[in-house]
């Protein structure tokens, strides 16, 4: 480092002495070119000098001094070898230029150096930025200070947008909960259910035909037929009664048949003709009647379809 800086102070006075005003130009040019080769930065440095160029051209052809060439070589070597060295060398050069610019071109040279300095700072900053490892951000590298704010705002927007669609969908899903649209074909389960239901209907129809066949042609609403029916059932009732006379005290559940027939025997088949039709406690407290009726109905109607179905179908299972 010291060896690099040492020759410069020596060289500059000599250059200033030797080639009064041309020298700085000549010396500058190769240096710029060398740098341009390195990083393509020389072109920038060249632009402010363009105005001088036409005048400079003939002079450029004159051979530079050995010393100057040596210096150039050294600089090139330095430049290629290390960045940090280069920086120091440049700063040294600046100083030297300042010192050297006593003559007419000092203004132009100052502009160049200032630009170069800015350039260097830019380069350093740029390389630093490029070397920086960026997080994998979908927003991309945003240098603004508002980066966080922007991100927050975008996230907020997205959040606001999402609940609208999602909320609606959720609401719909909730409304449709449990709603199952059946398939076109009947699966085995449905077929089985239909089978059970069919069995139930068959049983009901059979029981109805059994109950109605014997009294076919007799209309219980006609008094004549009602008498015949009563006679018919009376005998059955009496035989049934003699059988179960000892059990009659125990309860109604013992014999459905007798209960059913006794009703038939005592009363006409059509309800309005009965003595008790719509009379008595039945109407006053109908709710009580209903609950007590539950007991009666159970025993009264032996062929109540549901009860029949239930036990009949359960037994094979």
């Amino acid at each position: 480092m010291a060896s690099a800086t040492a020759p410069q102070p020596v060289s500059s006075p000599s250059a200033a002495a030797g080639a009064a005003s041309n020298n700085p130009h000549k010396r500058k040019k190769p240096a710029a070119r060398g740098k341009g080769k390195g990083k393509g930065k020389g072109r920038l440095a060249k632009t402010p000098r363009r105005s001088d160029d036409p005048g400079d051209l003939p002079r450029r052809r004159s051979k530079p001094s050995d010393r100057f060439l040596k210096l150039l070589r050294k600089r090139a070597r330095d430049y290629n070898s290390d960045d940090s060295d280069d920086e120091e060398r440049l700063s040294d050069e600046d100083e030297e230029e300042e010192g050297a610019s006593g003559s007419g071109d000092d203004e132009a040279a100052g502009a160049v150096t200032r630009f170069e300095q800015g350039c260097r700072a830019f380069r350093v900053a740029f390389t630093k930025i490029m070397a920086k490892k960026l997080p994998d951000d979908p927003l991309g590298p945003i240098l603004s200070a508002h980066k966080k704010l922007v991100a927050a705002k975008l996230a907020e927007d997205a959040e606001e947008h999402k609940p609208k669609g999602e909320g609606r969908r959720e609401k719909r899903m909730a409304a449709e909960k449990g709603h199952v649209i059946p398939t076109n074909h009947l699966d085995s389960k449905e077929k089985e259910l239909i089978k059970i239901a069919t069995q139930g209907v068959v049983r009901l129809f059979n029981s109805v035909s059994k109950a109605q066949n014997c009294r076919k042609g007799l209309n219980p609403s006609r008094s004549k037929d009602a008498k015949v029916l009563a006679k018919e059932t009376k005998q059955a009732f009496l035989t049934e009664l003699s059988k179960t006379s000892n059990q009659s005290q125990k309860g109604k559940a013992s014999s459905n048949f007798s209960k059913n027939n006794s009703k038939d025997e005592d009363e006409p088949g059509w309800a309005p003709l009965r003595e008790t039709y719509m009379l008595g406690s039945k109407l006053k407290d109908w709710d009580k009647m209903q609950t007590s009726d539950v007991v009666n109905e159970q025993t009264e109607i032996p062929l109540d379809d549901s009860s029949d179905e239930e036990y009949a179908i359960d037994s094979p299972e």
Binding site: D305, S306, E310
Partner: peptide, 8 residues
């Protein structure tokens, strides 16, 4: 008509 089954 009501048919109940499986309740036995």
């Amino acid at each position: 008509l009501t048919v109940l089954s499986g309740f036995g």
